[in-house]
């Protein structure tokens, strides 16, 4: 279930913590697996639990608590838009509306071609750059005016 490369990456994370605290690597391990597989399937969560010697439900608690983990498949590009108050004051909601209209989907929906999933996010700690959005959890996009959104969508093949 876990690729050799994922295992190696997870083992590097485990090494960050005291030997008897492997569980500390669970957040990183889930992120690594999600980056590779796109989402966290039941089997993936069990594999992580097994690798770290944790009860599967303890891993599931973590996977369901932190909202950047996806417990269901998402599109190739998951775009999370911050609509929290500081962003909303500077176009965050407009950016979300613009994306909804361009992609023809609402929050928590995926485009029929499976390319985009749109999510509403909470504060990303970049309020000065509003509107902000996060692509696949790793790429923060700042000052997303309509033309920037257009070019982002264009890049996401």
């Amino acid at each position: 279930m876990l690729s050799q490369e994922s295992r190696q990456q997870i083992d590097r994370e485990i090494a960050k913590y005291p030997a008897e605290q492997k569980q500390s690597a669970v957040m990183a391990a889930l992120a690594i697996v999600q980056m590779e597989q796109g989402w966290l399937s039941t089997e993936a969560i069990e594999a992580v639990a097994d690798h770290l010697g944790m009860a599967p439900v303890a891993v599931y608690e973590v996977a369901s608590f932190y909202n950047m983990y996806d417990l269901a498949p998402v599109g190739k590009y998951k775009i999370t838009v911050c609509t929290n108050l500081p962003c909303a004051l500077s176009g965050g909601v407009h950016a979300a509306d613009y994306l909804k209209q361009k992609l023809g989907v609402g929050f928590n929906e995926t485009t029929p071609d499976g390319r985009f999933t749109l999510k509403e996010g909470e504060c990303m700690g970049a309020c000065g750059d509003a509107p902000v959005m996060l692509v696949n959890n790793v790429r923060m996009c700042s000052f997303m005016q309509p033309e920037q959104i257009d070019s982002l969508l264009g890049e996401c093949k």
């Binding site: 009860a55 439900v57 608690e61």
Partner: peptide, 17 residues
Amino acid sequence: MELGQAFRGEHSEIMPF
């Protein structure tokens, strides 16, 4: 641990894996 509290806030649920 056969039961956990999954999700968070008001959506929290006690559940097995």
